[in-house]
Amino acid sequence: MKKILSILLPILLFAGTICAITAEEILAKVDENMNAGTVKSTARMIVETRRATRTMSSVSYAKGTDTAFTEYTAPAREKGTKMLKIKDDLWLYNPSTDRVIQISGNMLKQSVMGSDLSYEDFMEEIELAEAYIATMLEDKIYDERRCYVLDLMAKTENLAYSRRVIYVDKERMVPLYQELYAKSGKKLKTMRLSKVTKIKGRWYPLQVVFKDELKSGNGTTMIIDEISFDIDIPDHYFTKAVLRK
């Protein structure tokens, strides 16, 4: 019996530590899962407006959370339009005009391609663990998966969203649902992540539905068709020179 106990104890202890995973640790794991050194992805964005449903395709390259480059490939009207984000600056390039245009001011508030996302939202890529203090709430079943529910409060007073609630798949450490709140506590946006697939050893949601909760409509769906992590992306992809290429 003692022998059995001595074998089991470490296991029990280990299990205990698993159970006692802290909110911070979960968040770190989520960040680790969701952010990579470099990411290349091919995606479709489905925008529903009052008149029609439109699908836009794009290829994106990202490095860390600071720099990202997107090129639209379809439909014909948007083909060749490029978007480059470096820290707090955002540039657009459009082949028909051959112009690089910096997006600033009121333009940042506008929706990207008619979606429920604004340019500001595009700028808003952060490491959650770095920006928020997490508290664990009661677990929930979401989308038939057991989830941790984390309440995130902004560490600093200059984050766009001062509070988030995030549901993290316990097994895969992938966020499945996120609510973004205003300082007042009013829910502004929600994200529903689904089609969680294992890619090169990490679980990743291939579909996201963004919804501006104040706006009418059904939100915007983003579907990732192809994604690869930590690949070699030449540095020039993240300079303004890439826009004109």
Binding site: A154, A160, S162, K183, K186
Partner: peptide, 16 residues
């Protein structure tokens, strides 16, 4: 009616 704005530090705020 809902109203949204950014505060002086750039944080989203919204109220009915």
């Amino acid at each position: 009616v809902s109203m949204r704005f950014k505060d002086a530090r750039g944080v989203f705020n919204a109220y009915d």
